[in-house]
Design a protein around this nucleic acid. Structure first.
Length: 561
RNA sequence: CGGGGAGUAGCGUAGUCCGGUUUAACGCGCCUGCUUUGGGAGCAGGAGAUCGGAGGUUCGAAUCCUCUCUCCCCGACCA
């Protein structure tokens, strides 16, 4: 790469719209340019990094027997209706009509398409297992794109799908992917860890996310410092912190207009943890009261899993009808609808709660005597300080970026699309599937977050846009010679031959982050020497002109192993 | 969708409250010439903006009013 003939539009100042580190550097280093909200153009250097990330993923996918294919990004409505996701995706799916007024979707993911292929092409258990993958542009009309390239409306995903005869096979495919992912992310230079996760829209089976800690992350992961328990906050379990028992006789108190936990606990002079938060839901027309300790929040994910998807928060009129009071004054005592309580309420028996009468709360109710609780379950969002479910440790919260996600899908899509095979007995079975995704551009952003320090970016060699950069300080002849020799040694080399002030060239080089830098200037050449700098450690060595090529090749190949 | 912020030259900003001394300013970048070359060079000259858009108020609007578009950040979704 010869800089004077290339497009590397670096920016001296932070662009106005960029807030987090990766966004700033991607723009300033001329890797990407915004087109519209959540849409980016990838300029040569940005593409280069994405290609290196892609190639690492490809190699590791091939290593576990993955077969690369390329599916259509456009898909017909009928296909999505078979799985029920034409509706399930809602506004997140980009939809359009063709000239015949037929509905099409830009695929947000490809479970259906893959299952459809399987349904047409796979007949026998003898053909299983299979792993198919692709790199594909995904389209999702995100409610809020953010963080530059971290969450966009169009992005490249490596998505793979496994096809097995049974669940033991799925477990094996899942494990293969988990190992492949660990190898890929290690090779890229991520400090990742694996957390238990929720399947979301994809499915309900076991799922793991590959996370890196980052201040710009969108997820909260709960991590036990004393054992290996790691989980996304959506699904994390934990032991609730204890709460001092409420020492109070039963007493009804006038609390006009006070509805929230903060208002009520403040007014009554009790801790939030001594209050019962009661939320009324309606499912299929039936009321359902769920309780959590006042200092915790409900986990929507857990509610969904416990009670299904048709769960709607009650309107005020439902509350009047079933509880005899408005929202904000509900409590579990003396009502005969189904009541489910979070396990945080097992830490004590005496609480304060809504009185089931407008503008009144009640102190000193006993959950065991006064409330008819059907079941205690895990319904709350676990938070830092809660006890680890596996050991005596207490959980910590970390803000994380989700690099990849692996799911056990089961037969949801194979059944929907009719993907069946015959087993050894000639009996037909739906194929057991898994699905596994990695966001390519996001990995690039996470690496910037990780490796940008003190105004210098230093890409890991494995994913750097180029491996070594020659900064020519008016010495283009010698520099050109190094360039040719390094390139013919098989190195990915960039040559900054621009006629600019040295400071400006160094500043650009710091921004771009090519991990090794050869500085060729008149000062060094007078002694027959040039400098080789390793950006990651900020070490510079002074080498004789004749040794430069071998030395640099050595340093880089050492790092590749 | 709810809450917050911002749109002025390629980029970053000032000016906006309190209309007119503004032919819209400054830094960087860009073009020409000469000089310079180990951490964002110097001098001289030059190009570049219908101040996000539409309407209105006014003798006069970047500045006031109305509507509208876009972008960013914080929350509900996901690679």
């Amino acid at each position: 790469m010869i800089w004077s003939k290339s497009l590397v539009p670096t920016l001296r100042e932070d662009p106005r719209q960029a807030e987090n580190v990766s966004h700033k550097i991607l723009l300033r280093a001329g890797f990407v340019r915004p087109l519209a909200s959540g849409l980016y153009n990838y300029l040569p250097f940005g593409l280069k990094v994405c290609q290196k990330v892609t190639q690492i993923i490809r190699e590791e996918m091939n290593r576990i027997g993955g077969q690369e294919m390329h599916l259509s990004a456009l898909s017909p409505r009928s296909m999505w209706e078979r799985s029920g996701r034409w509706n399930a995706f809602g506004d997140d799916m980009f939809r359009l009509k063709d000239r015949k007024q037929q509905d099409l979707a830009l695929c947000p993911t490809h479970e259906e398409v893959m299952a459809l292929i399987a349904s047409k092409e796979l007949r026998s258990y003898k053909e299983l297992p299979q792993i198919w993958y692709q790199f594909q542009t995904k389209f999702r009309d995100e409610p809020r794109p953010r963080g530059g390239v971290l969450r966009t409306r169009q992005f490249t995903m490596k998505d793979s799908y496994s096809f097995d005869l049974d669940y033991e096979g799925l477990d094996a495919s899942f494990k293969l992917h988990s190992e492949a992912y660990s190898r890929m992310f290690s090779r890229m230079g991520h400090d990742f860890f694996i957390v238990q996760a929720s399947g979301g829209l994809m499915g309900a089976g076991e799922s793991h996310e590959f996370m890196v800690e980052a201040s710009s992350g969108e997820d909260i992961s709960l991590v036990c410092p004393e054992c290996d328990y790691r989980a996304n906050a959506e699904v994390a379990e934990g032991r609730p912190v204890s709460s001092p028992a409420l020492d109070s006789k039963k007493e009804k108190i006038h609390t006009p207009g006070l509805k929230t936990v903060e208002e009520v606990s403040g007014f009554l002079g009790v801790k939030p943890s001594q209050l019962v938060k009661s939320i009324l839901f309606v499912k299929d027309g039936k009321p359902l009261l769920v309780l959590v300790r006042g200092d915790y929040d409900f986990s929507e994910e857990k509610l969904k899993r416990a009670f299904g998807t048709g769960l709607e928060p009650a309107e005020n009129e439902d509350a009047e009808k079933h509880m005899g009071a408005s929202l904000g004054f509900l409590g579990p005592q003396g009502v005969d609808i189904d009541i489910y309580a979070d396990i945080s309420l097992e830490t004590a028996d005496i609480f304060a709660a809504g009185a089931n009468e407008d503008d009144y709360h009640i102190l000193g109710i006993s959950l065991s005597d006064d409330a008819n609780i059907k079941e205690y379950m895990d319904l709350r969002t676990v938070r830092a300080g809660d006890g680890c479910p596996n050991c005596k440790g207490s959980l910590q919260e970390k803000r994380t970026i989700e690099l990849g996600h692996i799911f056990k899908l089961g037969t949801k899509y194979s059944e929907a699309m009719g993907a069946n095979v015959l087993d050894a007995e000639g009996k037909e079975h739906p194929i057991v599937m898994g699905s596994y995704g990695i966001g390519v551009e996001r990995s690039m952003a996470a690496l910037i977050d990780r490796y940008y320090k003190n105004d210098v970016m230093a890409w890991p060699v494995a994913v750097a846009p180029y491996e070594v950069q020659i900064v020519s300080l008016g010495e283009n002849e010698v520099s050109g010679r190094f360039y040719k020799e390094l390139a013919s040694d098989g190195l990915d080399v960039a040559l900054d031959d621009r006629d600019m002030a040295p400071g400006a060239k160094f500043a650009d080089a710091d921004l771009i982050g090519i991990p090794y830098r050869i500085v060729v200037g008149p000062r060094g050449l007078k002694q027959g020497k040039v400098d080789i700098r390793k950006l990651a450690t900020d070490e510079t060595i002074n080498v004789a002109v004749d040794d430069v090529v071998t030395k640099v090749s050595q340093m880089i190949s050492a790092e590749k192993d």
